[in-house]
Design a protein around this nucleic acid. Structure first.
Lengths: 358, 358
DNA sequence: TTGAAAGCGCTAACAA
DNA sequence: TTGTTAGCGCTTTCAA
């Protein structure tokens, strides 16, 4: 099964050329759509190609042109609706421009990410979009850049890396979400958020250092909103776990078991929102009367759950599109100074927040 | 930006060989991990490679070996949680075996599917997994097979195509779901289901011909369950639209506007379930008292919606894994007769069905 | 164990 | 407009 085309009997340009009675080069020009070919020759070549069932070998072409028309996409988890939607935006935009997409999940693991970058580079992808698992340990991204492969960061930034990033202003968006809570009289407000494996292991979550830019900015926004409202942040209201539903549920139960539990929770991601809402329901807590909730990202179920979930939504599909567009611009030679591309967020007020006058 | 490696200054095996003072061939053997190389030479080559920052060009390798270690995955929509989860299973299993994955969305469009197959073949993928948009017009799949590229079908079968398929017994699963309804006394049971664009345009939905094997089998299962219960199927209770939430909502409203509306609805897909539940809520209908619902697939929100959704669940992740495993077995030379690989489904009884004694 | 040489299927000068 | 001739970077005989 591991044979060259010829061994499998697949016709090459040479075969087509012979059959059409022209030279190798002429057939290549007609089939490749470059250079000048007479009508007459083109017809004979097309006929011969059709008769033989000729198919281009893009590997051979890429060897010479140096372009594979393929983009690498490195994300944490395609199953996470955020990444699924961003991927959709990315692949749609890529296709519009004639590019294909190779995808890998890292599960927020830096080693996996490193391997993916290497593999994609070896495959000669024309560019990479990465949602990096950490801010530190990103030499592999720098190496890609050094090798001349454009890199665009999605959803997360890496300070010091000369690459475009496409994301929302997470700090501002979170501040708006939490301000919505303080404006409703809440003063005991918890945050349930996620971090990558490496960071959790490093205890970074605690210290607040090395957090994903996104996670860190969402916590910062939370803290800023509290401060603005004259509220002193409390450590036991800040929960950092991994990006899974069960982890979020566990953190919620810890919050509820506190001597003085919070009256509101800010969840920083759709999957976390799900875990939190589920745990609150299991606990028999009435939302929003006994517990208000604001989520980040607008999951598909936000409208069918009761109360309907109030959220800060980001334009996820557009994030993916923009990442592709920026990357392709770079591939095509754009040498402008790399910058941060911020897309707007929107606070969507529904029913999961109520006034607190405890 | 479209330059060969040499032009970008990327070192090749030749460069490493020169630096290490050995021949091209010896360096290749050491770096490629094949053939015999002395300890001494290997050390010098590895050092030189590291010093130069050498990276394999897998395109060149694939040209010769005829294998790209890449699998093509062609699905309708990565945003659909069913496909997202299947994709995750697929890529996880592929990676375990040393394969990478290229993905494309077809949106159930046959032309897009055809293009994707051609592109992937030109890229010399080692094999293809396809969730085909139709049963008819599948010459492109036959062509792939003819060219020696293994194909495995995911979730849907194509009669007459000599390819493995990995899916559940949709007829049986649907029959079980609808039987659950008849056992609860329901006699006016509707089905809301999806079909591909081509089929909808062809009016196939009406005639029941050319439906996706999966869609068709789910309708057949529904009809069988009705018949078993001595119920005569009614055309106006059979709704076929596209695989989108809004379409499902629209069909639900049509059902509710009927002179004699159904007392229960069977939804054949997670996204459709969402649209249906949403429309029922908007309509102010009490579930399950005024309307019972059974869904196909177990969406993430099934536990946070009230009533919690009763569903027939399929092992989606495992479906993706199995597809990858079958494909890789084929790539490695398995020539057993192609067969259907059925995975088990499970009826998960929750709260969205109640007895009807109208 | 090593090296020389051929060639995978295609594109890209260059000359005619 | 066409053909000739070199390769792209690697693997793979074959002989030494």
């Amino acid at each position: 099964m591991t044979r060259t085309r010829a061994e499998r009997g697949a016709p090459t340009i040479r075969d087509v050329a012979t059959a059409a009675g022209v030279s190798n080069a002429t057939a290549a020009r007609a089939l490749g759509g470059y250079g000048a070919v007479s009508e007459e020759a083109r017809r004979r070549i097309d006929d011969a190609a059709a008769a033989l069932g000729y198919r281009t070998n893009s590997l051979a072409r890429s060897m010479i042109t140096g372009a594979t028309n393929t983009l690498g996409l490195i994300i944490a988890d395609i199953e996470n609706p955020f990444f699924a939607r961003a991927t959709r935006g990315f692949t749609d935009a890529a296709r519009e421009e004639g590019f294909e997409v190779v995808v890998t999940n890292t599960d927020e693991d830096v080693d996996t990410e490193r391997t993916a970058v290497r593999l994609f580079m070896e495959k000669q992808v024309d560019g990479l979009v990465v949602a990096p698992a950490t801010q530190a340990m990103t030499e592999h991204l720098q190496a890609a850049l050094d090798a001349g492969t454009p890199v665009v960061l999605l959803d997360r930034r890496v300070p010091g890396l000369a690459a475009d990033s496409v994301l929302v202003d997470n700090r501002k968006a979170s501040e708006a979400a939490v301000a919505h809570l303080t404006q409703h009289g809440h003063r005991r407000i918890a945050i349930v958020t996620g971090a990558s494996l490496a960071e959790l292991e490093a205890g970074a979550a605690r210290s607040g250092r090395h957090l994903l830019s996104t996670g860190k900015n969402r916590i910062d926004g939370y803290l800023a909103a509290l401060r603005r409202a004259g509220i002193t942040p409390q450590d036991e209201y800040i929960k950092v776990g991994d990006f899974h539903r069960d982890a979020a549920g566990g953190m919620t139960r810890e919050l509820l078991a506190l001597p003085i539990p919070p009256t509101a929770i800010f969840t920083t991601d759709g999957i976390i929102s799900l875990g939190v809402v589920e745990a609150l329901q299991e606990h028999g807590l009435a939302m929003p009367e006994q517990m208000s909730v604001v989520g980040f990202d607008d999951p598909e179920w936000a409208l069918v759950v009761r109360p309907r979930l109030t959220v800060v939504a980001q334009p996820v599909y557009e994030l993916g599109r923009r990442a592709a567009q920026r990357l392709i611009a770079r591939i095509r030679g754009d040498v402008a100074r790399p910058r941060r591309h911020h897309l707007p967020t929107e606070l969507i007020v529904r029913d999961s927040v109520t006034h607190w006058s405890g």
